[in-house]
Design a protein around this nucleic acid. Structure first.
Length: 153
DNA sequence: GCCAACGTTGGC
DNA sequence: GCCAACGTTGGC
């Protein structure tokens, strides 16, 4: 069964416009076990993704993407010069994994974190829970649909 | 730029 | 295995 996710990115690093330009991209740099496990164990081709901009002026969901390749080793962990280099990961024993995502759509307007917090229907969403720092997390189908609706999609 | 909330590391 | 110290995330 199709599942729904939210993936965070800092737009200064990689934005929805970048994904639109690239069409597909590998989601490297996840260095958190919980987030990795979601990608490794649960993400399937065709799963839908809320594309979230964090650490920016108006944090929120800015568009949609789709999983187009299931988990495989994140080779940037082996690259000495990469920002997310991790000496504990190797080709023989990869520690980190990533999926590929494909661009689907850009919302006409950002569904801001603020707006989501003010929406009673979204209460209980993992994203909105206090202290949540996960950059890859599951989303309930009803919440996914509600957010699409807020965006006019 | 501040800082709260987490996650990770490493000494013991 | 505990836990203090440190690093990171990310909203504000």
């Amino acid at each position: 069964m199709k599942k729904y996710w939210l993936m965070k990115t800092e737009p200064e690093t990689y934005s929805i416009d970048d994904l639109k330009r690239d069409k597909t991209e590998h989601w490297d740099g996840i260095r958190n076990y919980q987030a990795r496990n979601f990608m490794m164990k649960d993400m399937k081709v065709g799963d839908e993704v809320l594309f979230y901009h964090s650490n920016c002026k108006v944090p929120g969901v800015v568009g949609l993407a789709r999983v187009c390749k299931e988990a495989y080793p994140d080779f940037t962990a082996w690259d000495l010069n990469a920002h997310y280099y991790d000496p504990k990961s190797s080709e023989e024993k990869p520690r980190w994994f990533m999926v590929d995502v494909a661009y689907v759509a850009t919302f006409n307007e950002v569904v801001s974190l603020r707006a989501m917090r003010e929406t009673p229907e979204l209460e209980g969403m993992r994203l909105l829970q206090k202290g949540n720092r996960l950059s890859v997390m599951p989303v309930e189908e009803r919440d996914f649909r509600h957010i699409c609706q807020m965006a006019g999609h």
